[in-house]
Design a protein around this nucleic acid. Structure first.
Length: 395
DNA sequence: TCTGGGGTCCTAGGACCC
DNA sequence: TCTGGGGTCCTAGGACCC
């Protein structure tokens, strides 16, 4: 039986959060953005969007589009607190929620919606309650899969509610421009557009082998999504991080060794502090370099054994930089640690390994004794036979 | 005044082992 | 002589999302 999946997305979250903090900002064109010469817009309020200001736009350009725009810098700790309130609110409806990012989550509403006569009214009520309790606006999608629910919450903003049943897919989803499809990004959609695929419906109805070539293995997933099937599993527990990294853009491109080394040092300190907070150790060090023409390079090195040692990470990263990019004019440098494992697990394994080692040493001694004993009887056993015998004894 | 920073997942080639 | 094939790890790069 089809599940009922809800996706909720907070509208212009960072900007709304700033309005909650300072209500005098209500109704003003407002952006949360970096203020340095290379800053970009993180979120724009709906008033700012009327001036053509969108996420990802350089801050100076936003200023140019609207000279009165209010600029707030990012206060992530505060947004995190608000975000927790939002998730707590949803958890009161159902514990089956999957946090997708700071401002969105999925929930399995199959049980909750079972006896609901008017789903739209139910969701409208939910939306209004969230607004009353947290002052946060949201958009909601309700559908049989996560993909469709996500597309639904994107369909109408702000304060939209979109219910998509399988039979509605062709009416609601197919006419949408291809670039609105979740999973199709700015690299893939021009390629598809080039061969005449302009809407999601075009993609679904195309039998061109070029489409398969462009999408690769994801092709099957996209086709399933477009037919109204696919992932409907809500993962309630948050998964362990797979990598921990920091990166930073220089105010001006540089090839100054000391300046780059200093930056790398600070980033590495930050990364190690996060690593320790997570009680992890890492065995792979990766550096990212972005050059003046925006090309991105990654270099990585697996270290001899998992570690949490700042010096090892820093020296490894510095050597990666020196060996590959010395004298190159760069825009950004980043360091990240991957192949992470729990510190406790590692020590457990290490102890186990030591015990194994000690056992082996003991066994060798025993073996020698036994051989010596049996020499008199002129019986020499191979170590292999001995261990076989030993495993029989232990059974 | 062109374009941040945190991630995840996938692909593909080469090395190395059995 | 001439040279298999599967599995796993490492490394590099690309695409996407928020």
């Amino acid at each position: 039986m089809a599940k009922i999946i809800m996706h909720i997305d907070l509208n212009a979250f960072f900007a709304s959060a700033e309005v909650i903090k300072d209500p005098s900002l209500e109704g003003k064109p407002l952006i949360v953005a970096g203020t340095s010469r290379r800053g970009i817009v993180s979120t724009s309020s709906y008033e700012a969007r009327k001036f053509g200001i969108y996420s990802g736009m350089p801050t100076y350009m936003a200023r140019r589009l609207c000279k009165d725009v209010v600029i707030k810098s990012c206060d992530f700790a505060y947004y995190h607190t608000l975000s927790q309130q939002f998730f707590a609110f949803i958890k009161e409806i159902t514990p089956l929620i999957e946090i997708a990012s700071v401002d969105e989550c999925y929930a399995d509403m199959t049980e909750v919606m079972k006896d609901v006569k008017d789903p739209y009214a139910y969701l409208k009520n939910l939306q209004n309650h969230l607004l009353e309790q947290t002052k946060l606006r949201c958009s909601i999608g309700l559908a049989p899969t996560k993909f469709l629910a996500k597309m639904g919450s994107d369909y109408q903003k702000p304060m939209g509610i979109t219910i998509i049943r399988r039979k509605d897919v062709k009416n609601i989803i197919y006419p949408l421009p291809l670039k609105d499809m979740y999973g199709i990004g700015k690299k893939t959609y021009p390629k598809l557009e080039n061969i005449g695929i302009k809407t999601i419906g075009d993609l679904m109805n195309s039998s061109s082998p070029d489409v398969k070539k462009i999408l690769g293995k994801s092709y099957d997933t996209f086709m399933m999504w477009g037919r109204g099937y696919g992932d409907d599993q809500i993962i309630t527990e948050s998964s362990d991080p797979k990598s921990i990294g920091r990166s930073s853009t220089f105010l001006f491109d540089t090839n100054d060794y000391e300046e780059i080394k200093e930056k790398l040092y600070l980033l590495c300190q930050d990364v190690v502090s996060s690593l320790k907070k997570e009680d992890k150790i890492a065995s792979c060090v990766n550096i990212t370099i972005k050059d003046s023409s925006f090309r991105v390079f990654n270099k990585s090195k697996t270290i001899a054994s998992p570690s949490e040692d700042f010096d090892i990470f820093f020296q490894t990263a510095l050597k990666l930089y020196e060996d590959n990019f010395a004298t190159k004019e760069i825009r950004l440098i980043g360091i990240s640690l991957s192949s992470l494992m729990d510190k406790d697990d590692f020590h457990l394994q290490l102890n186990f390994f030591n015990i194994e080692e000690q056992n082996k040493k003991c066994e060798v001694k025993l073996l020698i004794n036994k051989i010596n004993n049996k020499m008199g009887k002129k019986v020499l056993k191979t170590a292999k036979e001995y261990s076989k015998e030993k495993s029989h004894e232990s059974k």
